[in-house]
Design a protein around this nucleic acid. Sequence first.
DNA 1: GTCTATACAGCGATAGAC
DNA 2: GTCTATCGCTGTATAGAC
Lengths: 195, 195
Amino acid sequence: MDSRSAGRAAVGKRQRLTAAAARVLHEQGVERTTIADIARAADVPAGNVYYYFKTKDELVEAALAEHSGYLATLTRRLDRLPNPRERLKGLVAAWVDQRDTAARLGCPTGTLAVELDKRAEGGLDLAVGQVIRQLLDWVEQQYRQLGVADPAGHALALVGAYQGMSLLTNALRDPEIMTREGARLAREIDGLVQG
Amino acid sequence: MDSRSAGRAAVGKRQRLTAAAARVLHEQGVERTTIADIARAADVPAGNVYYYFKTKDELVEAALAEHSGYLATLTRRLDRLPNPRERLKGLVAAWVDQRDTAARLGCPTGTLAVELDKRAEGGLDLAVGQVIRQLLDWVEQQYRQLGVADPAGHALALVGAYQGMSLLTNALRDPEIMTREGARLAREIDGLVQG
DNA sequence: GTCTATACAGCGATAGAC
DNA sequence: GTCTATCGCTGTATAGAC
């Protein structure tokens, strides 16, 4: 195996571990997930994980970056829509699309925020705040382009509504909640006027 | 020590353990809290806990019941207000009052819901759903008395907004979020008309 | 770079003396 | 009813062979 394919294999394992961490940590929660769980899901030998990630926290950090990347991809796709109103409704539609996952597991970032808040060491609690900020900033931009008053307030309300309905959908195990609330949010966005 | 004071002492320890569990589980999270932590906070010898609670899950269950009781007390107090609009705004005001705690720790019931969802054994994930239902039902009653259309939908939106703003307040460490969002919710309640 | 073996710590739960 | 001692397990992390 030459150095190029060896390098590729190494990147491959790291990426598989990162993707597996994002998935398994969402499913089982941070505290109940062992490094062996993630290794198994990534199809990487358990004892090999520490070569790529020195601590469990580094794996959590990688998973968080994965979610941040997903969010960036989503908003970049929405940016191609013709106007801010459509972009915001596209975001809501993307949320509603995830309703079954939300009912089983909640919002990936939101549940991570709750768990990492209780994990003071390493400052991961602040890192997850930045990911939420990232979404908040994008939403605020859209409201600003719409010309409404207090775009930051509108952004807080919309992202907050999403986090809240994810939590209720999960706690009550009912994806329909997401559908109903999503429809309400879309109506509100449609009803907005400049001012 | 006669049987009466022995009984009282037993009840006292059980209650202290329950109150301590509610507090410490909220502060540290379920998974990161040890039975010894709760015992220390309750000022009960560590080895004595198992006499009152056979498992850790029973302690969690007791903490959940404590939160449910708090909620019942709060809504009973709000029931003395003259009309449903004031009662709903009183609920929002009670939430905003807790903004500093929310910024540090999030909503007690909401964070518990996220954590217990990942703890399938014992059915505590369903129990926390019932506590949320309890609040949802009370709120729905108020909207019904107000005569608005779709009182259940309004209840989901209000409680969802609370859970969402609690999570954002906590993740971003900013109690002001709670104040702003609370003001917005109060305005919405004031603006409601029958139909 | 890969993998095995294991050190080391913490915790839930139990047994049993008092 | 109270408390100590400890079992047994799990999980993070490391040492070191290959």
